[in-house]
């Protein structure tokens, strides 16, 4: 078994490389073709089997201690292949990143082709997409020093100037909606709401430097020091808040264990899982 594995793992060069690569591609395509021609009644079983086996890997890796494996020195062979699993999943995952790009191309390509309302925005999407991709690749791969340098500058302007600013500004818009909501929506209509608001106000003051200044007239030590805003706020965070968060975490723990089991054993129901394959 191990000799077969070693034979497969040997790097190939020259014509051998071409033969092995093409052979692997043919095998891969054959498997894909086999999958595509699978009758509908077996499809769910195949998906459930793959899900179960993949889950079994990490489950056994955790549940069976090294001493129970008949190996010397005692070790868990499933743990040994973890670095390979990491690299493999990372690469397969990278291929998936083009899924979103493909979708964007379809939507904006259609908009540009139809010349409908706001088509120039879609054109701007394509221009900016290829500008940063082209500048990035040229700065890394261009043989001409001048071209490489110019590409690097353009890349920096597009990245540091536009991209990071646009991203950060988009996220920061929420601050304005919080301000608006603070004034118009946060209404203390019940005792629970009052308790929540009071806790929030104390913690908001305790976290920032001004909190320590507000009650700075109180002594640093002794019984009265317990009334300093930063102390009350920090106590709220580390004692009542901690206990409440732990209770929520225990609820999540039981829920996630149940959810994990349902997904692993393909028992989960819903639109995605019940769809006819």
């Amino acid at each position: 078994m191990s000799s077969v594995w070693n034979w497969i793992a040997i790097p190939r060069h020259g014509w051998q490389f071409a033969v092995f690569l093409c052979g692997a591609l043919v095998i891969g395509c054959a498997v894909l073709m086999l999958l595509t021609s699978t009758p509908p009644r077996y499809r769910k079983t195949i998906v459930a089997a793959v899900t179960f086996l993949a889950g079994l890997y990490y489950a056994l890796e955790f549940l069976i201690p090294p001493a129970l494996w008949p190996l010397k020195p005692p070790r868990n062979p499933l743990s040994e292949v973890q670095p390979l699993v990491a690299t493999l999943t990372q690469i397969i995952w990278s291929f998936a990143l083009l899924l979103g790009v493909w979708n964007l191309f379809l939507i904006h390509g259609r908009a540009v082709a139809k010349h409908g309302r706001g088509w120039y925005n879609s054109a701007a999407f394509f221009i900016s997409f290829f500008a940063i991709l082209g500048a990035g690749l040229l700065k890394d791969y261009a043989k001409n020093a001048g071209l490489s340098k110019a590409s690097e500058s353009i890349f920096t302007v597009l990245f540091s100037g536009f991209l990071t600013s646009l991203d950060a500004t988009m996220f920061s818009l929420i601050a304005f909606y919080i301000v608006s909501a603070a004034y118009r929506a946060f209404r203390v209509k019940s005792l629970e709401a009052a308790l929540m608001m009071a806790a929030a106000a104390i913690i908001m003051l305790a976290l920032v430097p001004v909190g320590a200044e507000i009650t700075n007239w109180l002594p640093q030590a002794g019984l009265l020091s317990a009334l300093r805003v930063e102390r009350i706020g920090y106590w709220l965070l580390t004692s009542p808040n901690m206990a409440a968060q732990r209770a929520i975490a225990f609820g999540i723990a039981v829920g996630s264990l149940a959810m994990g089991l349902r997904i692993w054993l393909s028992l989960e129901r819903g639109n995605f899982f019940d769809r006819q394959l």
């Binding site: 990490y58 973890q82 670095p83 390979l84 699993v85 990491a86 690299t87 999943t89 990372q90 690469i91 397969i92 995952w93 990278s94």
Partner: peptide
């Protein structure tokens, strides 16, 4: 990629 696989590895 999945963080769990990389961190375990």
């Amino acid at each position: 990629g999945p963080m769990y696989a990389i961190i375990r590895g």
